[in-house]
């Protein structure tokens, strides 16, 4: 079984459209949407939810008014400015749940034991069926933290499903950026597929994701999406990638079919006669070849 994570550095490069097409092309696969704070994959895979669970990622603090003696200790020791002081209120202290990091320090040192510190529900995750196989996805709660933990959970569930059904691939739609959720998405994966766009920003972001993949020693592959918007920059990006030991496995052209497919709620390869679908197939074939070479 191989786990392939589709990432992009910069968002909006067509990562999700590529991931959705890979899911269809990979056949015996399970798909995991790890872009947990802006998930889109469900819009083109039409999952039927079979199981929904709460996600408890961390704890959060709250002051029990009746017990607080207004000593101000919590206000003084919270390093995240999450304890707010408002003298017009009784008690004068309360906790800003959005700012709270869940470190528990206030609760531990409150002389009156007036601060509850309890696990909080940070989101939900789902196991679904799609036409193309099982899917694990999630939704981080509004203004919640711990996206990294939720990503790990989604990946673990996908792995369990793949093992149980003896599926050959896990296709992961990764989050944008290079921070906490991306690190959680790629550590220990078999391959990272970077979808870049031919812009100077795209080139800049590619360097940073590529470095990240290198940092965690994960084989990385590149495909430039909408390459014909600026073939010169596209080439430039591919050169840079090759120099950094990243294999270039295809190019995808700019095609309005991608947006139309999105509007119809379908992956692009559901329109098999289009040129862009052909590009996607080439990307997948090359990727599959490379992955199976690595195995030997």
């Amino acid at each position: 079984m191989k786990e392939i994570v589709v990432v992009s550095g910069k968002g909006g490069t067509g990562k999700t459209s590529v991931a959705a097409s890979l899911v269809v092309l990979a056949k015996r696969s399970v798909v995991a949407d790890c872009d947990v704070d802006a998930a889109d994959l469900h819009l083109v895979l039409e999952p039927r939810i079979k199981k929904t669970e709460d996600f408890t990622g961390g704890k959060s603090a709250s002051i029990v008014p009746g017990r607080c003696s207004n000593c101000g200790k919590c206000y003084e020791i919270c390093r995240f400015n999450a304890v707010i002081k408002d003298e017009s209120k009784q008690p004068a202290y309360f906790i800003d749940h959005i700012a709270c990091e869940g470190c528990g320090v206030c609760s531990c040192f409150c002389p009156e034991k007036a601060i509850d510190f309890k696990p909080s529900v940070n989101g939900r995750w789902f196991i679904s069926d799609t036409r193309y196989g099982p899917m694990v996805h999630a939704r981080l709660g509004i203004a919640q933290e711990n996206s990294g933990k939720l990503v790990s959970l989604v990946r673990n569930q996908a792995r369990m499903l793949a093992e149980k059904d003896n599926l050959s691939y896990i296709i992961v739609d990764g989050p944008p950026g290079i921070g906490c959720p991306v690190i959680s998405s790629i550590t220990g994966a078999d391959a990272v597929l970077i979808v870049a766009e031919p812009t100077v920003s795209g080139a800049h972001d590619l360097e940073r994701v590529a470095e990240l993949a290198g940092h965690f020693k994960i084989p990385a592959f590149l495909c430039v999406n909408k390459y014909d918007l600026n073939p010169e920059v596209a080439e430039n990006i591919e050169e840079k990638a090759r120099a950094g030991g990243i294999a270039v496995i295809g190019r995808i052209r700019y095609d309005r079919t991608v947006t139309e497919a999105q509007i119809k709620g379908l992956p692009v390869v559901a329109f098999p006669d289009t040129a862009v679908a052909e590009d996607m197939r080439t990307v997948w074939e090359n990727l599959e070849k490379k992955l199976n070479l690595n195995k030997q």
């Binding site: 933290e145 999105q262 509007i263």
Partner: peptide
């Protein structure tokens, strides 16, 4: 981008937020 801690840290306490979107299903979701 996104809706979790990094964005919240960036926009907390500002006077006004402009949300940029594109007219596609992904963008609007």
């Amino acid at each position: 981008p996104g809706t979790s801690c990094p964005v919240i840290t960036a926009i907390k306490g500002v006077d006004f937020v402009i949300l940029v979107t594109e007219p596609t299903p992904f963008g609007l979701n």
